[in-house]
Amino acid sequence: MKKLFKDKTIVFLLPLVIITFLFLYICYNYSMGIYKNIEEKQNNKDIKNFIYTLNISTHKSNIKEKSYYQEVKKLCENYFEECLVKTTINSKKINAEKITIDTYHLNLFLINDFHFFDTKNKLILHIKSKSKENIIITSRNSIQIFSSLSIIFLILTIIITNSYQKHILIANDSLEEKVNERTSQITHTLKELEKVNLRLFDLAHTDYLTQIKNRRSFFLHVESMFQNQKKVNKPMSIIMIDIDNFKKFNDTYGHEMGDKVLKLFASTINNYLSEDTIFGRLGGEEFIIALPNEKIDSTIAIAEDIRRIIETLVIRVPYSELFITASFGVSDSTNANTIDEIIKNADDMLYDAKSKGKNRVRGRIS
């Protein structure tokens, strides 16, 4: 049974079948009631006509005469299917003072019992009739034929619907496979597109030579850092860095050696810094670092550490060794309303370090 109700066709058509049978049942009972009323009206009309004709005939014949008995039966059969005529007393004439009629159904036929009484209330004639043609039987047969045709039509509808649904299911399965295949292709394409977009984003925000943040990317990130630190009322610092005498590397050893210096310089500092700092190249030999939660005194110490690491770097060239130094300018967010103010202060400190002999750190309080 559970398996049967899993069939979508059965589940869909079962209410239709129930409604159809209910509709046929209601129509059947309603129609039978109508036909029964029609039959009763027709029967009442036949009774009136029969009694009227019988009264006329009764005054012309004697009840003892055999021909009269046959005449009454024949007269009754003009209005009804079957008639049974009985006399109960000997009388020359039928002078019926009272007539009673009992009408009832017997085996779906309408039966009439006529009782004729004389002036002394004695039964003088009894006639039993059966309706000529039972309208109810005829109507029932018609309704049964109609119901049978409706049921056959319903069965054919179920078969056709079931067959059609199977074709639809096959088509849906095929379409679903195509949709799944296309969805898989689109998903794969979107993933590849996402990778490409990430790659393009990295290219747009990464310095192509040193592989750290470029100028644009740095300012996007540092502005966000500044706003976050400001919300929680915590400090942040900026270190501006410039490689000393970088132009000599390019002029003396060529741009290839200059690029090598920039890469080594950037990777050395990047390895030293923690993950929460922002490190970027502003252009040429100028770099910048943003440090959250650091005031200027601790930031100067960090800058000094980086300066000492940088001056220990050695670049080997034919017949010689090259050393790198850098100048540092430091500033923090104290009394600064924007990130641009902090960067400008650090840049001023960097200029001071350059003018004071290079390879040194200068901060706001130094």
Rank of each mutant, 00 (worst) to 15 (best):
L264W: 01
F323M: 08
I365D: 13
L125T: 04
S142P: 00
I111P: 00
H105S: 08
I26Q: 13
N293P: 09
E181K: 05
A96E: 14
I243Q: 01
D207A: 03
S61N: 15
I152V: 12
A96R: 03
K248S: 04
L14W: 03
N337L: 05
D207E: 08
G254A: 05
G357S: 02
P292M: 15
I145C: 07
R199A: 09
Y25L: 12
D251Q: 14
I212V: 09
H205K: 06
D259V: 10
N228L: 09
F12G: 06
K36H: 13
R308I: 00
F146L: 05
Q185H: 12
T183R: 06
F226S: 01
P235W: 00
K98N: 15
K178Q: 07
V222E: 02
T334P: 00
S366N: 12
I269T: 00
R364T: 13
Q229M: 13
D276K: 10
L125H: 06
A204H: 05
Q229E: 15
F323C: 10
K356I: 09
I243K: 01
I34W: 02
K73G: 01
E256R: 11
L313R: 11
R316C: 13
K260C: 03
I18Q: 08
K191Y: 15
N134W: 10
S148I: 07
S150P: 02
L84K: 12
I89H: 14
G280D: 04
N271Q: 07
I343S: 02
L154N: 12
G363K: 03
R215M: 08
K263M: 07
A336R: 01
N141K: 06
L273E: 01
I243W: 01
I306E: 01
H126N: 09
K248Q: 10
N180M: 09
D102N: 13
T189Q: 15
L190S: 09
I212M: 07
F279M: 08
A96W: 00
T206D: 05
G254C: 07
N95A: 12
E194L: 03
I168A: 11
N228G: 10
Q185T: 14
F153K: 06
I160V: 15
D118C: 11
R281F: 05
K231I: 13
Y319C: 11
T189W: 12
I339G: 02
M257P: 04
T100N: 13
E97D: 12
K178I: 00
T338H: 06
K45L: 14
T58K: 01
S131C: 09
S217D: 10
L16T: 06
C27R: 05
R308H: 04
V361A: 01
L125Q: 09
L169T: 15
I127N: 03
I339P: 00
Y35D: 04
T138H: 07
S174L: 11
